[in-house]
């Protein structure tokens, strides 16, 4: 039961840290929020604790690779990197000017 309680608290922290850091402080030239470093710390803390807590959870294992330590963390990271790089590759030939069809269709 303790593990459930800690997971609930961690979830709330994760959502807070992630939202506040990634959304609020990203892409801005000057710091947007005075607790920026605190949010970053919360974000980093949840990243690490999620992996640590995962070591103690009783996983429901179906596939052999689920036994890997922090499988979901590795997979989530790899998936997102793959996704962005693959999309970057598609960029070589999919994007066209906004009036592409107008010109091609001769209208």
């Amino acid at each position: 039961m303790e593990i459930m309680l800690s997971v609930f608290v961690l979830t709330a922290l994760a959502i807070l840290g992630f939202t506040a850091y990634v959304l609020l402080n990203f892409g801005a030239k000057e710091p947007r929020h005075r607790y920026r470093d605190l949010f970053l710390a919360i974000y980093g803390f949840t990243l690490i604790t999620m992996v640590v807590v995962g070591l103690f959870a009783e996983w429901h294992i179906v596939f052999p690779w689920q036994e890997l330590t922090a499988f979901y963390a590795v997979y989530g990271f790899a998936a997102c990197v793959f996704l962005i790089y693959f999309a970057k590759g598609l960029r070589l030939w999919l994007p066209k000017e906004e009036d592409y069809y107008e010109k091609k269709e001769g209208m």
């Binding site: 997971v7 992630f18 009783e58 996983w59 979901y72 997102c80």
Partner: peptide, 19 residues
Amino acid sequence: APHMIGQLQLLLFASLAFV
């Protein structure tokens, strides 16, 4: 617990990749 931890690991580390 495993369900929530797995999902949070997936999402948080995906966001880490973005960052």
